[in-house]
Computed example of a mutant assay.
Amino acid sequence: MINKIEGLIAAPFTPMHANGEINLEQIPAYYDFLQKNGIVGAFINGSTGEGVSLSQEEKVKVTAAWTALNKEHKALKVINLVGGTSYKECIESAKASAELGVDAIAILAPFYFKPASGKQLAEFCAKIAEAVPQLPVYFYHIPVLTGCNVSMYEFLQEASTMIPNLAGIKYTHEDFMDFLSCLSFQDGKYDMLWGRDENLLSALVLGARGGVGSTFNYAAPLYHQLIKAYNEGNFVEARKMQQQSIDMIRLLGKYGGIATGKAYMRYVGVECGEFRLPVKNMTTEAYKAFEADVRALKMEALFSKI
């Protein structure tokens, strides 16, 4: 049986020093911050964590920092994204992840030479998964960044027979028809983790019970209230919470995209530095305007607390 994860899994930012080097010293406080705010897991080295901008050595160091804390506290499920474009490199990362004690790994679609079918994608993932048969394996579906638009239902049809340790999918896309088909596949066998924070409520309606998100880092109370309202049948309140999530997320677009997430972290008191190039970071002047816009949301009680 697959152990499905319920609740909020944060996709942590990788803290950086001012010189652009990774700041491992910040991770223990970050771990405690997530735990305190009711987060059940950490999806590390993903898009939010700048995994594609880190070296292999850096990704191993980040993984070691998170798993060392987990061995001590056992509070968060740690899922490590291992890549990527080269299955050989992904296998190296997967084996290192297993040695370090992650709870699961995730695999990203090749984003240069792209698989054209569910079978090709499953064959690529199977090469990596078979190297760590003891570990649960997730596929990370984010076609807006990978350009791989293979249907996940088609992928599951192929992968279910090729990958015995496949646990599920982190689904960061808006195809609700495909998502529901994956939820229903083989009587709901696989763990389908929703990856679009701005429409989490819609995924809950379809049957999702776990999600992975960047905004869970700094606004966990908002999503806890959303889920609670939905579970209690208070759909008016649930929709209100989702709209506040949307209003908050709109500021990411206004201030340049993914790097705005680290500005939100600074706003709640967790300094993560800046994103690496080529991502555009916020100027000091822009941050002042951003702070004013965040205060105008009037949702201070819904942000995570230190």
Rank of each mutant, 00 (worst) to 15 (best):
I5L: 14
I5A: 02
G7H: 10
L8F: 14
A11Y: 14
A11C: 13
P12H: 11
G20K: 03
L24S: 02
E25G: 04
I27S: 01
P28Y: 12
D32W: 01
N37M: 13
N37A: 12
G46W: 12
V52E: 10
L54N: 00
L54R: 00
V60S: 02
V62R: 00
V62A: 02
V62W: 06
T63C: 15
T63P: 00
T67Y: 08
T67G: 03
L69A: 04
N70M: 04
E72L: 12
K74G: 01
N80Q: 13
L81I: 06
L81S: 08
T85L: 10
E89R: 08
C90S: 15
S93R: 02
A96M: 11
A104M: 08
I105G: 03
L108F: 06
A109G: 06
P110N: 07
P110T: 11
F111V: 00
A116F: 02
G118E: 12
K119L: 13
Q120F: 04
Q120A: 15
E123V: 13
C125T: 13
A126R: 15
K127S: 10
I128L: 11
P133E: 08
P136A: 09
Y140T: 07
Y140C: 02
I142L: 15
P143C: 11
V144E: 13
L145E: 10
L145M: 14
T146G: 09
C148I: 07
N149Q: 09
S151D: 09
M152Q: 12
M152A: 09
Y153N: 13
E154Y: 09
L156N: 10
Q157Y: 06
A159G: 05
S160Y: 08
A167Y: 02
I169H: 03
I169L: 13
T172D: 08
F176Y: 11
M177N: 06
S184A: 14
K189L: 14
Y190S: 07
R196W: 07
E198H: 11
N199H: 07
A203P: 01
L204Y: 12
G207Y: 00
G207C: 08
R209Q: 14
G210S: 05
G211H: 02
S214N: 03
F216D: 01
N217D: 04
A220F: 05
P221L: 12
Y223S: 00
Y230I: 07
V236K: 13
R239F: 12
K240Y: 14
I246R: 11
I249P: 00
G253K: 04
G261Q: 02
K262D: 02
R266A: 13
E271T: 05
C272R: 04
C272G: 03
G273N: 09
F275Q: 07
V279W: 05
M282S: 06
T283H: 02
Y287T: 02
Y287H: 03
F290L: 01
A292E: 14
R295E: 13
R295D: 15
K298V: 09
M299Q: 15
E300K: 14
